[in-house]
C-alpha cells in the first residue's frame, strides 16, 4: 500500500517534470531549425502537428550530434596530449581543435556507426605504384 503510494507520487513528479520540460520546449530554439526537422520527419512518414514534439526530436538529434562531437573532441585532445614533448613544441602552432575524420570515426564507433574512410586519395592511377614498374 505504502509502496504503491510512493510510486504514484513518483509518477506525479515525473508528470510534473515532463509537462514542465515540454512547456520549456516552446521557448527553447534548438540549433537544428524546425523547418529542417519537419522536412526530414515528413520524408519518413512522421506526422505530428505538435511543435513541441518536433522540437523534442530536434533536441534529441542535437544532443546526439553534440555527444559525438564531444567524444571526437576528447579523442582529439588525447591524441595531442600523447605526442612526445620535444615534438609538441614544434606543433604548438598546430595545436588547434580540428574535427578530423580519424577522431570522428572513433567517436562514431562508440555510437554504433562504422565509418570507413579512405586513407588518401590518389592524384592519378599511377601514383601509388612502384617507380620501377612505372617506368615499364
Amino acid at each position: 500500500m505504502n509502496h504503491s503510494q510512493q510510486s504514484n507520487e513518483a509518477k506525479h513528479d515525473d508528470d510534473a517534470a515532463l509537462s514542465e520540460f515540454l512547456a520549456s520546449l516552446m521557448d527553447y530554439t534548438p540549433t537544428i531549425p524546425d523547418e529542417l526537422v519537419e522536412h526530414y520527419l515528413g520524408k519518413s512518414g512522421f506526422q505530428c502537428p505538435d511543435v513541441r514534439l518536433i522540437r523534442l526530436v530536434a533536441v534529441a538529434t542535437q544532443k546526439f550530434v553534440a555527444e559525438v562531437a564531444n567524444d571526437a573532441l576528447q579523442q582529439c585532445k588525447a591524441r595531442q596530449a600523447s605526442i612526445i614533448k620535444d615534438k609538441r613544441d614544434k606543433q604548438q602552432k598546430d595545436k588547434r581543435l580540428i574535427l578530423t575524420m580519424e577522431d570522428l570515426s572513433k567517436a562514431l564507433h562508440e555510437h554504433g556507426v562504422n565509418v570507413k574512410h579512405q586513407e588518401y586519395f590518389a592524384d592519378s592511377p599511377s601514383t601509388g605504384m612502384d617507380p620501377a614498374s612505372r617506368d615499364e
Binding site: T31, Q62, V65, A66, A69, N70, A72, L73, R96, L97, I98, L99
Partner: peptide, 9 residues
C-alpha cells in the same frame, strides 16, 4: 553544434 562543443575548425 561542433563549434559550440569547442571545435575551432
Amino acid at each position: 553544434i561542433c563549434q559550440s562543443v569547442g571545435f575551432r575548425a
